[in-house]
Structure formats: structure tokens, C-alpha cells
């Protein structure tokens, strides 16, 4: 489903974020990406979503080679992905409902389909009752759940989550882990980065660790 072959990323300042990373993730797999902060986890996820381009190496996502991807083709790649951000990236000028509806609106869904799907996604993360609320009024854990709802509302085959449990209390973090577990059970390919792998012990995913931009096996 996702394949990275000798991927390196060097930033303009000379800092090497990734060194010769090769990973293969098969369909339906739950892969946990661990490592201390600054090890390159975020960079790896950004490269998979074509938010950043690698300095060297090849990446295939869903059979598509990202190396030769034109800027105009990137949106269509991202529509097959669900992205969960550490800082949620919710829009505080609109309701929870409208935040979750965003991925459907950009692909011109019919209004009634949008309503049905948004409610299904909010139900899945346990926030059906809060659809009219403004995300700013929600707790950190709830905001993260809204972010997950937005990532799965268009039913992507792949979900990439960058530190979804960071800045959350243990209880909230466990709720999020349970959510990912449920997604895994319905066959979604999952790649989650975290620096606290202990939360995911019950799920027993495959774990790869990054250290200073390189994989340690």
C-alpha cells in the first residue's frame, strides 16, 4: 500500500531529517512509528502525504509514485488519505459539523450525502451530540476526535496520524487509541507516529523506530 525506498530528506540548512529510510506497509496494516522528538517521524509522514518532497529516494502510495507527481495531481492523492494532525488544524470560525464536512465539500458531494456521512463520522468518534458546537469550546481530546472524524469522513483507505496522542491526558489518549483500533478492524491501513508507544500495547501493531532520521530495526 505504501512503499518507501531509500528515502532521504535534507533541509536547506543542511539538517538531515531522514537518512536512507526504506519501509513497506501492506494493505490493512497498522504501523506504529516511534522515536524521540526530532527523529524524523513528522517529516516521514509529510513526505507520504506529499506535503514535503524527499531529497532522494522513491515513494509509492496506493500504487502512485510520488517522485514524479505534478503539483496539480497532489490534491487527488490526498483525497485517498486521511490526515490526523498533532495540532488538529481545526477551523475555529465554523462548527464541528462544518469542520468535518470540509473534505466532502471540496469534492462537491451532494448536500444530503454530506449530512449522512458527517453524522456517521461524528458518531464513530462519539461526538454526534456536539455537531453544532464550535471546536474552540471542546477539550483537547474532543478536538483530536473531531480531527479524526474529518480524516475518515471520506472513507480513505489510508490514515496517516502524526502524534495524535501528544498533549492529551492518559484517559483521552486511550480513547484515541481505541478509535484507531476500530479503524484497523475495518481494514484501514494505518500509520501512526508517537513517542509514547506504551498506549498502543493492547493493539500490538508493527513498530518501527526512527533515530536521528534513520530506521533502527
Amino acid at each position: 500500500m505504501i512503499r518507501l525506498s531509500s528515502v532521504s530528506k535534507r533541509y536547506a540548512g543542511g539538517q538531515e531529517a531522514l537518512r536512507n529510510v526504506s519501509i513497506e506497509i501492506s494493505k490493512g496494516e497498522f504501523l506504529l512509528l516511534t522515536g524521540h522528538s526530532g527523529a524524523g517521524k513528522s517529516t516521514l509522514l509529510k513526505i507520504m502525504a506529499a506535503i514535503e518532497r524527499p531529497s532522494a529516494g522513491q515513494i509509492w502510495v496506493g500504487g502512485q509514485n510520488l517522485a514524479g507527481l505534478r503539483a496539480a495531481a497532489i490534491p487527488y492523492l490526498r483525497r485517498n488519505l486521511g490526515l490526523v494532525f498533532q495540532d488538529h488544524k481545526l477551523l475555529f470560525d465554523r462548527s464541528v459539523y462544518d469542520n468535518v464536512a470540509l473534505p466532502l465539500r471540496i469534492t462537491a458531494f451532494e448536500t444530503r450525502d454530506i449530512s449522512r456521512r458527517v453524522r456517521a463520522a461524528l458518531d464513530r468518534v462519539g461526538l454526534l451530540g456536539r455537531e453544532r458546537a464550535n471546536p474552540v469550546a471542546l477539550s483537547g481530546g474532543e478536538q483530536q476526535r473531531v480531527c479524526i472524524a474529518r480524516a475518515i469522513v471520506h472513507r480513505p483507505a489510508i490514515v496517516l496520524a502524526d502524534e495524535p496522542t501528544a498533549n492529551l491526558d492518559d484517559a483521552y489518549a486511550r480513547e484515541i487509541v481505541t478509535l484507531f483500533q476500530a479503524l484497523h478492524q475495518v481494514g484501514v491501513t494505518l500509520l501512526v507516529s508517537t513517542h509514547s508507544a506504551a498506549f498502543f500495547d493492547d493493539v500490538s501493531p508493527r513498530v518501527v523506530e526512527l533515530q536521528n532520521g534513520a530506521l533502527v530495526s
Binding site: A49, A72, P75, Y76, R78, R79, L83, L102, T107, R150
Partner: peptide, 16 residues
């Protein structure tokens, strides 16, 4: 700015 950034991240085309 945020709305545009998020829209791009989740797959909005430039023309959208």
C-alpha cells in the same frame, strides 16, 4: 490562511 492551508492538506485543488 488557515482555511486555505487545511483545505489544501485534505485535497482541495487550487481551482477550488
Amino acid at each position: 490562511r488557515e482555511e486555505i492551508e487545511v483545505s489544501k492538506l485534505i485535497g482541495a485543488t487550487n481551482s477550488f
